[in-house]
């Protein structure tokens, strides 16, 4: 029985990252008595909700061997568009919400089209597109937040259901959707094929470009969703939404077993990676570590987490 459990743990690629997460949670709860209180757990769940949606999107792109560094900018821009539609145009908030998700998917699709048609490396292209979306955002808002978002959609951002924040449940829902797509559908198989060997995928007649476009669009959709939920949460459309959604999700995906080279890993693993980063950032503030040290400490812990995972993998493979 124990042997079987051990075997499962060793063979399951997620066991490393889950183990590291468990370790960090235990250490955190020993270091700070506030860590496990229900309010703090709600906070962690909520911040994981937003960064998690971007992480799901980014990890799916990374499985393809692509990156989209403009997801944060798309989220912020869609949030602002949503704010304008709701406040300035006076559109029904639900309609505006849905419209913004569609616009986000279009932005993602545009990134994908540029990557596939121009045969550009997505890293460089999306750095540029982040500037375009972020710049348009500033042009439209002049940097001023749009206030007066209708309270109707407020519960999407700040409401709770069964003790946990609504955005967290929405993130979980899309995590299930993303895992279903990647693991259970032919489309998901094609994603892994394209990410693991593009020429072999083309040799099999897989339309790599269509797969790419699909994932880019889905990623844009998720970014817009995160942005709109943040607007609902803040009650205002802040131009700065999404600024901090760029590097964290990439690190989270790598920690969770999706390398930047693509072809392996799952969105589920990436979410565990995001949880590791989220818990570390939470605890660092709880412990009152000087803000000048925070980046360094959280960076170092992330490096240690990745190393632990990779060392454990190598160690178990040996035997």
């Amino acid at each position: 029985m124990l042997r079987k459990a051990m075997g499962f743990m060793v063979s399951n690629p997620l066991s490393g990252v889950v183990g590291v997460l468990a370790l960090i949670v235990v250490v955190a709860s020993l270091l700070s008595e506030n860590f496990l209180n229900s309010y703090n757990l709600v906070i962690i769940a909520r911040s994981l909700a937003f960064i998690g949606m971007i992480t799901i999107a980014q990890s799916m792109l990374m499985i393809l061997g692509e990156l989209d560094l403009s997801l944060g900018a798309i989220g912020g821009f869609c949030g602002v568009i949503g704010g304008i539609l709701m406040v300035k145009v006076g559109l029904n908030p639900w309609l505006a919400f849905a419209l913004c998700l569609a616009i986000g998917a279009l932005f993602g699709l545009l990134n994908g089209l540029l990557v596939t048609l121009l045969r550009l490396p997505s890293l460089v292209l999306t750095i540029g597109m982040a500037g375009v979306y972020g710049g348009l955002n500033l042009v439209i808002t002049k940097g001023v937040a749009i206030t007066g978002i209708p309270a109707d959609i407020g519960f999407l951002g700040s409401g709770k259901w069964a003790g946990l924040p609504v955005p967290f449940w929405i993130m979980l829902l899309f995590l299930v959707v993303a895992c279903f797509i990647t693991l259970k559908t032919p489309f998901g198989r094609y994603m892994y094929a394209v990410g693991s060997n593009l020429s072999a995928a083309r040799m099999l007649g897989i339309r790599a470009d269509r797969v790419r476009l699909g994932v880019f669009a889905f990623a844009g959709f998720l970014a817009a969703l995160a942005g709109m939920l943040m607007v609902a949460r803040l009650g205002s459309a802040q131009p700065s939404i999404g600024d901090s959604w760029v590097l964290g999700p990439i690190a989270a995906s790598v920690i969770g077993g999706v390398p930047t080279t693509g072809g392996i890993g799952t969105p589920l693993g990436a979410i565990f990676g995001a949880a590791i980063i989220g818990v570390i950032e939470n605890v660092i503030v709880l412990l009152g570590i000087s803000p000048y040290w925070q980046s360094m400490v959280s960076g170092a812990i992330v490096v240690i987490a990745i190393s632990l995972d990779s060392i454990s993998r190598r160690y178990f493979k040996r035997d």
Binding site: Y192, S196, N197, A200, G263, I264
Partner: peptide, 13 residues
């Protein structure tokens, strides 16, 4: 290696 297999994926996949 370049055009046939998907390295890192199982035989089944």
């Amino acid at each position: 290696k370049y055009h046939g297999i998907f390295p890192g994926q199982s035989v089944r996949r």
